[in-house]
């Protein structure tokens, strides 16, 4: 336990010292928050209603998908995992500790957004704070698990960018962050349901704002939880200390199984 806490303490402090992580976790999301808040509330006044969860989810996407996978690939390439391995750092710590660290950093960002949005943009506050926290943790866990998986199966930082963008860009456009999923063209709705953000927006709506959710709030919760567990389990299974050899590379397509809960969600919703 002492080792775990020590490692977490170091990882958290590193997050603050690392300019790249600091930018993707704090500066970029907060900058987008102010720009998007000013622009979207002027264009679409109804954006205010979903602004807090939408911007919080954007921050989650930015600090997980856009930052975490490349960090994992770089650490593996630079032999950091080798050093960890010979000194007894378990693979679970390598995956779990950065995830918790990201969660703590994101809590700070989410607190800044939630505390300032009502004053700056007249965005409504959540009515159920516990539900808000639960929804926040769920989407952070789902995106972190996917990011870990991308970091584990990618062989280069360029590949992490590609895979992260496959989730990030559609999430921004089709995931209900900018415009509600309900007004998307019918042909694009199923694509939106393949993304964790669509389910996260529904969970925020149901749990944090006590709004009615199509098909109930339990289903998106189950999809997010199943997606998290599957992606994390696969990340742990596919984890390699060094660049994967040809035998390990053959297993990497298994990573696609992480999409199964979202595919099932798209079929049933």
């Amino acid at each position: 336990m002492n080792a775990f806490l020590n490692h977490f303490s170091f990882e958290f402090r590193t997050g603050i010292r690392n300019k790249g992580l600091l930018f993707m976790t704090y500066l970029f999301p907060l900058l987008v928050y102010f720009l998007l808040g000013a622009l979207m509330t002027a264009v679409n006044p109804y954006f205010r209603d979903t602004m807090i969860p939408a911007i919080v989810i954007f921050a989650v996407l930015s600090s997980t998908l856009l930052a975490l996978p490349a960090t994992l690939v770089a650490a593996r390439k630079e032999g950091i995992y080798r050093s960890y391995r010979i000194n007894g750092v378990p693979a679970t710590s390598i995956l779990v500790i950065p995830s918790i660290s990201v969660l703590v950093h994101l809590m700070i960002v989410a607190a800044i957004i939630t505390a300032s949005a009502p004053f700056i943009f007249k965005a409504p506050l959540p009515v159920n704070w516990l539900g808000f926290l639960a929804a926040f943790i769920m989407i952070t866990a789902a995106c972190t698990a996917l990011s870990l998986l991308i970091g584990v199966f990618s062989t280069s930082s360029q590949m992490t960018v590609l895979w992260a963008q496959v989730i990030f860009l559609p999430s921004m456009i089709l995931g209900g962050l900018m415009v509600p999923s309900s007004i998307l063209p019918k042909a694009l709705s199923p694509v939106g349901l393949l993304l964790p953000t669509t389910y996260a927006m529904r969970v925020f709506s149901g749990l944090a704002y006590n709004q009615p959710v199509e098909g109930g709030v339990l289903f998106p919760i189950i999809v997010l939880l199943a997606g998290t567990l599957l992606a994390f389990g696969l990340a742990l299974y596919l984890f390699t200390w060094d660049a994967p050899d040809s035998r390990q590379m053959k297993r990497m397509p298994l990573a696609l199984l992480a999409l199964v809960p979202y595919i099932i969600g798209a079929i049933f919703l």
């Binding site: 002492n2 080792a3 020590n6 490692h7 170091f10 402090r13 590193t14 010292r17 690392n18 650490a75 630079e78 032999g79 950091i80 080798r82 050093s83 010979i86 000194n87 007894g88 750092v89």
Partner: peptide
């Protein structure tokens, strides 16, 4: 060929690995 995280200090690295 091994490395440590670029932001870890000498003292932190000793503390981290000793704890493991």
């Amino acid at each position: 060929t091994s490395g440590l995280p670029e932001n870890i200090t000498v003292e932190e690295s000793i503390r981290l690995f000793c704890s493991y």
